[in-house]
Computed example of a mutant assay.
Amino acid sequence: MADELELLRRANPVPVDGPHFGDGPLDHHAERRLDRLMRERIASRRPRLVWGLAAAAVVAALVSALLFTGQTTAPAIAAPRPLLVQADSTPVSLKTLAERARAAAADGSPKLRKGTHVQSWSMGMSEDEPPITLPEERIVRWKADDSHTELVVATDPRHPGRPVLGGDGELVEDGHVLSRRTYPPSWSDAPPESRPPHDAARLHDYLEEAERAYLSDHSAPLNTSELLDATKILLDHWTLGARESAALARLLADAEGLRPAGQVTDRLGRRGQAYVYDRSDTREMLIMDPATGAVLGLETTFTQTEPEYGVKAGDVMSYSAWMR
């Protein structure tokens, strides 16, 4: 319990000098801190995300949909299988990819854009129900006055048109709107809200600052695990331009333990080069565009079987696919 309390104190989604939200929703900064808290629990203990009643809701939804409504189309509820590296493909080193990215960025196109478009799959677990995977697509667009909109829908591009699990574990139609929000103007000058640089050294400092709120040792440089976490934070806020992608590829090329694995086809049908990093009980697979060095996706899989949670080694914990 002491360890968990310490994690909560470090997460502190609403600091004493911050705005008070009462019973309203958390802002992006608070949500990001809570997300990091869950990932710290995964890293420090056994992987576990608690969805409690969500799995029970799935059972009820399936019974209702398949027995009482006469629905004959099978819902798209199966968890994704881990991406497979093409057996006869030749791995490309990150240093080579970084050079390709630098050459591709020579004309400065495409440009950096604030906002993101991401498809994700995330697994939820409990001790007494089987794990479930929630597929969502999120689009964030910023306006000229620094306000922005966020649209989140339940959809699985692997099974277009088939029912999927919604945010609370209920069965919904493909494309069901989970949330549609408009946020007032924000003029934060701190990462990740501030504009990311396209110089590798400055980008490292930027990512370090974006990740610093979640680090127990603020004086240590980012390790590979933290760099991948910071990369996800960055891509969940910005659609990188060619120069920023080249700077990020340069940083990743120097990351210890991130090794080339070969070619993969991601869950959106895009060809990419895979780079793998092993954590204590999970494995990260980073997928990058072989020509431009842009990050296409990041997959986390379990490397240990957890029978008490219904999890097997190789199961996908989460996957994010970023688009322009």
Rank of each mutant, 00 (worst) to 15 (best):
Asp266Lys: 05
Pro260Trp: 07
Glu137Gln: 13
Arg33Asp: 05
Glu129Ile: 07
Ala154Ile: 02
Leu62Thr: 04
Pro196Met: 06
Thr231Met: 05
His218Gly: 13
Lys111Ile: 03
Ala2Gln: 05
Leu62Pro: 02
Arg259His: 12
Val50Met: 09
Leu222Gln: 00
Ile77Cys: 04
Thr231Lys: 05
Leu298Tyr: 11
Met123Pro: 12
Thr116Ser: 12
Ile77Arg: 09
Glu306Cys: 12
Ala246Cys: 02
Ala2Leu: 14
Glu308Ala: 14
Ala230Leu: 01
Pro192Ala: 01
Pro192Tyr: 03
Glu170Gly: 13
Glu40Tyr: 09
Ala106Asn: 04
Thr69Leu: 00
Glu193Thr: 02
Ala30Asn: 07
Ile132His: 12
Leu67Ile: 06
Arg180Asp: 14
Ala230Arg: 00
Met1Pro: 05
Lys143Ile: 01
Phe68Asn: 10
Tyr183Arg: 09
Ala43Asp: 13
Asp199Ala: 06
Ala98Gly: 14
Ala200Tyr: 10
Pro192Asp: 00
Val276Gln: 12
Lys95Leu: 06
Ser179Phe: 08
Trp121Pro: 08
Leu67Ala: 12
Met288Val: 14
Leu171Met: 12
Val59Tyr: 10
Val92His: 09
Ala54Asp: 12
Leu171Thr: 05
Glu173Gln: 15
Ala79Asp: 07
His159Thr: 11
Gly241Val: 03
Pro110Tyr: 11
Thr224Asn: 06
Val316Asn: 00
Val92Met: 15
Glu137Gly: 12
Ser318Arg: 11
Gly175Ile: 06
Leu49Gln: 14
Pro25Glu: 07
Trp187Thr: 11
Pro184Met: 01
Ala106Phe: 08
Gln304Trp: 12
Ala144Met: 09
Gln304His: 13
Gly52Ile: 07
Gly24Asn: 06
Pro221His: 01
Asp254Ile: 08
Glu173Leu: 15
Ala313His: 00
Arg46Met: 03
Ser147Thr: 11
Ala74Gly: 05
Arg283Glu: 03
Asp35Gly: 07
Trp51Gly: 14
Trp142Met: 04
Pro307Ile: 00
Ile139Trp: 15
Glu137Arg: 15
Thr69Ile: 00
Pro47Asp: 01
Ala61Val: 04
Gly18Met: 09
Asp107Trp: 05
Val295Gly: 05
Glu209Gly: 01
Gly293Thr: 03
His117Asn: 14
His148Arg: 14
Met317Leu: 11
Pro157Leu: 11
His204Gly: 05
Met38Cys: 09
Glu6Ala: 15
Ala55Tyr: 01
His237Phe: 08
Asp23Thr: 06
Leu34Thr: 11
Tyr206Ser: 06
Asp254Ala: 15
Val50Ile: 07
Glu256Gln: 13
Thr303Trp: 09
Glu150Gln: 15
Arg100Cys: 02
Leu37Gly: 03
Asp128Met: 07
Leu207Thr: 00
Lys232Thr: 12
Ser44Ala: 13
Ala294Gly: 02
Arg271Cys: 09
Pro160Phe: 13
Arg141Gln: 13
Gly262Phe: 04
Glu99Lys: 14
Arg181Ser: 15
Val59Gln: 13
Arg36Gln: 13
Glu170Ser: 15
Val153Leu: 11
Gln71Cys: 02
Asn223Tyr: 06
Lys114Thr: 02
Glu127Arg: 13
Leu222Lys: 00
Arg9Ser: 10
His218Glu: 13
Ser216Cys: 01
Gly241Arg: 10
Trp121Gly: 04
Ile139Phe: 13
Ala144Phe: 08
Thr305His: 09
Trp187Ala: 08
Ala261Asn: 08
